[in-house]
Structure formats: C-alpha cells, structure tokens
Amino acid sequence: MVSDISQLGQSIEAASAGSDAGKTKAANSVGEAFEKIYEQTARNLEKADQQAVQANTGGPVDLHDVMISMEKADISLRLLVQVRNKAIDAYKEIMRMQV
C-alpha cells in the first residue's frame, strides 16, 4: 500500500517534471498556430481588399474574383474568431480552477 502511494507520488513528480519541460514548447506551438491562422486571415482580407479596389477602379479582376476572395476572407475570419473564442474559454476555465 505504502509503496503504491510512493509510486504514485513518483509518477506525479515525473509527470509534472515532464510537463515543465513540455510547457514552454506547448505554449509556443499554440501561440504559433494562432499566429499562423491570424497571418493567413490577414493575408486573405488584404487580398480581398485589393481586389475590391481593383474591380472598382477597372483593374483586371472579375466580380467573381472579388466575391470569392471576400468569401474566403470571411470564412477564415470566422474561423479565427472561433479559435480565439476557444482559446479564451480554455484560459478562463483554467483560471477558474480551484487550487
């Protein structure tokens, strides 16, 4: 029984040590992923914006070019908002945790 408990303690220690090592990496990867999604969304929005201006100033773009880039930008923006909501929900959940 006692040995069982001590083993449990060891495994908890090991787990926390492991998570310490992994923590910075995990935090980075979540941040990086978010950053990537954000960058892609910003790029999509920028492209849609440029095409809308070009279409209005008689540039070499068709209406469907503009509409499709705007649609893509819209979807990626919605995705970004959802990812952000999830991340904030998770953060709040963790902050509410009783220690």
Binding site: D62, H64, D65, I68, E71, K72, I75
Partner: peptide, 18 residues
C-alpha cells in the same frame, strides 16, 4: 477541402466568363 470546392467553382466561373 471546402476551399477546394470554391477553387473548382471559381475555375468554372472564369471559364464560363470567357
């Protein structure tokens, strides 16, 4: 993949415009 559908549809829009 859903953006893939959009790309395929887009290619058709371009072709039909031509």
């Amino acid at each position: 993949d859903i953006l893939g559908v959009m790309n395929i549809g887009y290619s058709a829009l371009k072709a039909q415009t031509t």
